[in-house]
């Protein structure tokens, strides 16, 4: 076993050249790839975190919007109920007054018709009495009987009126 200086020098130079060339052609390109990959991973994590934060924000906003919408819905429902109550009352009162008016009109019409019928019947009855009386008088009534009948008829008429 002997140590030769030129062999030592050769090995040292050879190793130096090897480091230089491997660094240039092997380590640097691979470290660059690792660096790029790490950066990509970091960016992805950052993006994911931001997305998560945005999602949380959106969830909070959604919750707020939902609670506001619920409140508004309750308010709208209340208002609609009140409006419906008012409208219902108004419609019922209008219908009642209209119905009353219609009933009044019908009653008035009925009274009018009754009055006309009564008038017509009175005229007819009068005619019938006169006709009947004439026929009876023509046949066999004495003056006294005629007078009695006339009086009776007058009484009857008075009762009718």
């Amino acid at each position: 076993m002997e140590i030769r200086w030129y062999q030592l020098l050769f090995q040292v130079v050879n190793f130096g050249v090897l480091i230089f060339l491997l660094n240039r052609f092997l380590y640097r390109p691979i470290l660059k790839v690792i660096e790029l990959r790490n950066k990509k991973i970091e960016d992805s994590i950052k993006t994911a975190e931001e997305t998560f934060k945005e999602k949380e924000k959106i969830a909070v906003l959604k919750q707020q919007a939902l609670s506001e919408a619920e409140k508004e819905a309750v308010q709208i429902l209340e208002a609609a109920k009140q409006l419906a109550d008012k409208a219902g009352k108004r419609i019922i009162s209008t219908a009642q007054s209209e119905a009353e008016q219609a009933v009044d009109k019908k009653l008035a019409l009925l009274a009018d018709t009754l009055a006309q019928e009564e008038k017509r019947l009175r005229g007819r009855i009068g005619d019938l009495v006169v006709t009947t009386t004439r026929q009876v008088l023509k046949t066999s009534l004495t003056n006294q009987e005629q007078k009695r009948i006339v009086d009776q008829q007058i009484k009857e008429l008075r009762k009718l009126s």
Binding site: M1, I3, R4, Q7, L8, L9, F10, Q11, V12, F15
Partner: peptide, 11 residues
């Protein structure tokens, strides 16, 4: 070879 290992050690 001791020359190689010594060179590496010195380096």
């Amino acid at each position: 070879d001791i020359n190689t290992t010594l060179a590496l050690a010195i380096f």
